[in-house]
């Protein structure tokens, strides 16, 4: 059974009375234990698609299932962009991790320690850097033990050090066999983390290319310096910028 299955997903929004199709039959499957990245231009509907996978928005057409269940019934760990405010500002780090999770304080402390953010457990979101906020949001998601992680631009507005922190945690989840869909603009981090990358075109959006990322099973943040990393990144870059032609169908 696929972890995530999206078949012909369509979505149309109305802007000033004009109906504008955003997603025009997007299809994607994600296998259990797989990390899949979604890359595409601004406004192409990546985040909309992710919210539909999370059951937060309904598609106008098509079918989405998460481990055989409808998206709204699926057990997903949705992490919005930290710049959008993924943490509850009135809760400290530990309370944010525990929010919505039936867990003891000890469980929340354990996961915070595991993520290396234990010493910030009682700091409030406005006292945390972007990377720490992102780690707290991911830690909360991990504690809810979801079937699939859905991460919306986990590296946006992060400096290099914070990006490495987030990458390390996501690589650890990958090692543990987690399943994830990651929306991003960052080719380097997406290539580093993902098994496949779906490149989306401009509106109305379809999957323009589905690229396998073959970098070996064991990856670390320094895998970005491996010789094959550049060639894979270049392939993704070309698909993203349209240099490889209008339709690339390099299916894994």
């Amino acid at each position: 059974m696929d972890a995530v299955s999206a078949e012909g997903v369509k979505k149309t929004y109305s802007f000033s009375g004009l109906r504008q199709p955003i997603l025009d039959g997007v299809s994607l499957t994600v296998k259990q234990g797989e990390f899949v990245g979604l890359l595409g231009p601004n406004g192409c509907g990546k985040s909309t698609f992710l919210r539909m996978l999370a059951g937060l928005e309904q598609p106008d057409g098509g079918v989405i299932t998460v481990f055989g269940r409808t998206a709204s019934e699926g057990r997903v760990g949705y992490v919005p962009q930290h710049t959008a405010g993924a943490l509850f500002p009135w809760l400290d780090g530990l309370q944010n991790i525990a929010f919505g999770n039936e867990c003891s304080e000890g469980d929340a402390i354990d996961i915070a320690e595991e993520f290396g953010i234990g010493k910030y457990a009682h700091a409030f979101p406005h006292q945390l850097s972007g990377g720490l906020k992102q780690l707290f949001a991911i830690a909360r998601s991990v504690l809810s033990a979801p079937d699939v992680f859905l991460l919306d631009e986990p590296f946006s507005a992060l400096d290099y050090q914070n990006r490495l922190l987030v990458e390390e945690r996501l690589l650890a989840l990958r090692e543990q066999g987690a399943t994830a869909v990651i929306v991003s603009h960052d080719i380097e981090s997406t290539v580093l983390l993902c098994d496949r990358i779906a490149v989306l075109g401009s509106k109305p959006t379809r999957v323009r290319a589905l690229l396998p990322i073959r970098l070996g099973e064991r990856r670390g943040v320094e895998t970005r310096f491996a010789p094959e990393f550049n060639s894979v990144s270049k392939q993704v870059f070309r698909a993203l910028t349209g240099l490889a032609g209008s339709e690339v169908n390099a299916v894994a």
């Binding site: 919210r51 997903v76 949705y78 405010g85 993924a86 929010f99 919505g100 999770n101 909360r140 859905l150």
Partner: peptide, 22 residues
Amino acid sequence: NPALIAVAKSLKKTDLEILLQV
């Protein structure tokens, strides 16, 4: 903030819980 509601919904909070807690 829609992101907070999205997080609460994805954590299966009910409408009443979202009203009171978010």
